[in-house]
Design a protein around this nucleic acid. Structure first.
Lengths: 250, 250
DNA sequence: AGATATTTGTTCGTATGTATT
DNA sequence: TAATACATACGAACAAATATC
């Protein structure tokens, strides 16, 4: 018989079971962010478990971003909204062994970013457009030999758009992909070359044109521009990273 | 001053810090699935922490699907690959408070499923095509008054395709969306009506045509069919669920 | 600003449960 | 079956953090 590597009969132990029970109650809407904090003691009494067991369960939920634990008076366990960062962290647990290539990323990004542009164009507030304009300026200002920083600023432009997306799924998917690209850029760095200069100008010009189409509320044009932008971005990234460049480590 | 709701200065406690350290080492590739198991005792000694602290950290990593803990001789801590189910569970922690509508889901699904069809058409093995054919048969056989079961079987067709996708990101995104749809179908149920009969036939016919285009390795046709399929599927789902139908509870 | 009360954080000893040999 | 090796759970004591007065 093989090692039980793929067995599914895992008997959930007490602390794990407790974590599952509490998670269910959180998911069912019984507790909400802002509610008065529960306490370790309450959990121990309600579920008839020892302090250690209760703590293990709570630490599990805390690590998943579902609750917040504070010491001191008025402290205890309070339910929180899971943050995008935490969700991305959990996703990376799943993906970090995968051989993700630039092509994989852009295969998806090329369809999602244009869709995002189309959706948000009529929705962008004056304030958001200002933020995009500020971002465009700082992209221009970043020191010429700071290619990595330039890429991060450029990705921020797309993050701002994602934050305005009323479709939670699309918003998260795009944020996740941007997060991946940030990991790549931070890990590998982008050396300064003639090509990276072209990359910068291409990105800058597209962002400038996108901004105009946002101002004009021209969703069709924004979609088209974003589509072109993604194609060029992929081409430039492939030059630097030789495709087959694979994501490893954090 | 507001409540420190958005503070980021959260001091990570010992057990949490230990979990982060061990996670880093797992992500860096130091440990791999199949390696001999570590033991609680090893962790305690290496990091100079007590049993309780070590256990909290290990329970955290176990709950995230990164490790497996077994009792008994040869037991201990072994590193595992995070499962799709676990990743979906973590995603649901993030999304369960969001107001996700059918339109949100299909806005994304309408661009991703056709892309998937295009990618996998040249890659489908004889074996996979057989599995799809079997699925098509069982869709036909499911009892006429089992509309919910029908939807689950139909979604399985798309799951099989996703499993063949060499792009890990696209594969996961689609599996996640299918998982959401399963939650909806299971939670709300789909009553049997004349409309649900149409839904069934529409789905069946599209799956049958898709199968043909897969056999012919006709990626263009498969893409087109999938695109049409998604439009109809959305329309039918909207009839049942009145749009604005929102996902709540597990 | 400092003392205090409250609540979580960490440790240890012990006993029990469980899987392998 | 018994012995062994490992995790699991409990309880009590003490340490650290923090809100409030």
């Amino acid at each position: 018989m093989d090692k039980a590597l793929f067995e599914n009969t895992k008997t959930v132990k007490k602390s794990g079971h407790l974590a599952i029970q509490i998670r269910q109650r959180i998911l069912s809407g019984e507790f909400n962010p802002g509610d008065p904090a529960l306490q370790e003691k309450d959990i121990m009494e309600e579920f008839h478990v020892s302090k250690g067991t209760a703590r293990e369960a709570l630490k599990i939920l805390e690590s998943q971003g579902l609750i917040d634990i504070r010491t001191g008076p008025k402290g205890g366990v309070s339910v929180t909204q899971v943050s995008v960062d935490k969700a991305n962290e959990m996703m990376w647990n799943y993906f970090f062994r995968s051989d993700i290539t630039i092509k994989d990323i852009y295969q998806v990004r090329k369809v999602l970013e244009p869709l995002l542009a189309e959706i948000v164009t009529p929705l962008l507030s004056r304030d958001t457009i200002n933020r995009l304009a500020v971002n465009l300026d700082s992209l221009d200002c970043v020191g010429k030999y700071e290619s990595t920083a330039e890429r991060i600023v450029e990705l921020d432009f797309h993050k701002i758009l994602a934050e305005c997306c009323p479709n939670p799924i699309l918003a998260f998917f795009i944020q996740f992909i941007i997060n991946l690209l940030e990991k790549i850029v931070m890990a590998q760095g982008i050396e300064f070359t003639d090509e990276s200069e072209k990359l910068k100008m291409s990105g800058y010009n597209f962002h400038a044109d996108l901004l105009k189409s946002f101002l004009n509320k021209d969703a069709v044009e924004a979609t088209r521009l974003m589509s072109e932008h993604m194609k060029e971005a992929e081409a430039y990234m492939l030059q630097f990273l030789n495709d087959q460049q694979i994501l490893k480590k954090e």
